[in-house]
Amino acid sequence: MNRRQRYEARQRRRSGLIATASTLIVLAAIYLLIPLAPGWERVKASFFNWDVFARTFPTLLEAFLLDIAIFLWSAPIIAVLGLLIALCRAVQSPALFPLRIFGALYVDIFRGIPVVLVIYLVGFGVPGLGLPRPWNSPYIWGTVALVLTYSPYVAEILRSGIESIHQSQRAAAISLGLSERDTMRYVILPQAIRRVVPANMNIFIALQKDVALLSFIGPVEILRQAGIFKSLLANFTPYVAAAVIFLAITIPATRYADYLMARERNARG
């Protein structure tokens, strides 16, 4: 090793030791000090009861499958609708101006209303107009509500992605004789979509959590099931168990989004 490498190795060892020591101190403090809080035993029994956790976990996991299912069929629809709205807002030709207005209004309205309100209005309101079963299912209209509230975010992210592609790309494509549509489809969109994948991942992680709001209009998914257990067992641990299950999905997804962002940054740097 040369002189610089030796120095850097020494520095690394030092900072490694300091980091480990300070982490251990913090962990020890947490471990020792928190139980000293007056309400700790009660909180532990109420929120971190291992017995209740073990008993409720399997049922909660099963209920979570419903959340995952709802996510899996909502996400593609949201992605497609988001793209369509983004394209509506990107049209230039005057004949298609109503599309631009529609796109802008749609985004403004549905980004502005809380998801839960839309779920009630659409989930109860639309079937209440007299639809026959199975067309009035809360699964269908709850999904519609999620699509209505989440597609604007995807649309705006895509729109900013499209606008971030330098004009010169379009100039080159147009100069080759490509149509506006082909330019968008083969040159702009592939680059734009790739560029905003990390931002979109954030939206979809949020979606996975908001799926739980469908519990308001009937489906017994994990949030509702945890609530039932809470009432049955007079204990909040089922909610902690549900949180753990959510994190098991969202944390890996977040890390993956971070990885994609880092990769994107390095590629363009």
């Binding site: 010169s168 080159a172 080759l176 004789g177 490509l178 149509s179």
Partner: peptide, 30 residues
Amino acid sequence: RRRIGIVFQAFNLFPHMSAMDNVLLAPRRA
């Protein structure tokens, strides 16, 4: 525009395609 070609200072190649695909895109689509 098919009859007039232009080359730019900043090359303006499409970064998400190979050189060959860059070249083939317009003849195939247009």
